[in-house]
Design a protein around this nucleic acid. Structure first.
Lengths: 126, 126
DNA sequence: GTCCCTGCAAATCCTTTGCACTCCT
DNA sequence: AGGAGTGCAAAGGATTTGCAGGGAC
């Protein structure tokens, strides 16, 4: 199961389900959810929601930034060193104990920008 | 409608619904959702999900940090200046165009920590 | 009358759960 | 036999949607 989560970007349970089906055709969605939750409870994968109504899963448990495309819903890692001190800097201002942080950047991804350009250019070039 | 969202912390649609009912007893949940989505589409309120399965709404549209208690689900603002340059710093590493950012800190809030202390102390003091 | 916004209820989507079954020891 | 993990289908929650009604112009 774990090896499946290892494979690519930041799939939803349903995306993973379809993907796993190619290898285990009889697997059920319930099992996928069950194992995904098991793994994230054990801390072996990260689980988060981007606002698109689905839970996403990430095999990379290192703290890192995410970029979410509002148009196509794609989620990409951002390859920048995350400020590791951010938690200790913010902690004094919080009534409670912080144990993790997540930051998301929202916008429009490269391919969505491109496809829009194409759309816009075609009527012009005709 | 807007004045309602202005009132307090980071309610879910359902919390707001119950709250609005006190003033407009006949309002329906569908209307609450409709208007909340309208307002957030117009950029007058912020909408985000914390991982508890609900959408939360925030009348404060200024970028700021959020603290989410994993135990009781409460969401609090963190009164620290958010690094405004973070988007421009990260932008070069993203294939696309960032237009907003959100960062969440997860942990256990003060009151949940306290109630746990009390629980733990009682058996000892008996 | 027309338009816009609403209440209501049904529909939808994602996720969780209960139960019976299989597989392995 | 006993336990763990699974498929399947039903249940559960949150959010969205379709439609008819009501008020303002």
């Amino acid at each position: 199961m774990n090896c499946l989560a290892h494979r690519f970007d930041h799939p939803t349970a349903d995306m993973l389900y379809h993907d796993i089906q190619k290898i285990y055709p009889k697997i059920s969605l319930g099992t996928v959810y069950r194992n995904l939750n098991l793994l994230s409870d054990m801390g072996m994968i990260q689980r988060f929601s981007t606002g698109d109504g689905n839970e996403h899963y990430d095999a990379n448990t290192q703290p890192h930034y995410h970029f979410v495309c509002r148009e196509c819903g794609a989620v990409h890692d951002i390859h920048v060193e995350m400020r590791s001190r951010i938690i200790s800097e913010v902690a004094p201002y919080v009534d409670g104990k912080i144990d993790s942080a997540a930051t998301f950047f929202y916008g429009k991804c490269g391919s969505c920008l491109n496809s829009k350009e194409i759309e816009n250019n075609q009527p012009v070039s005709e």
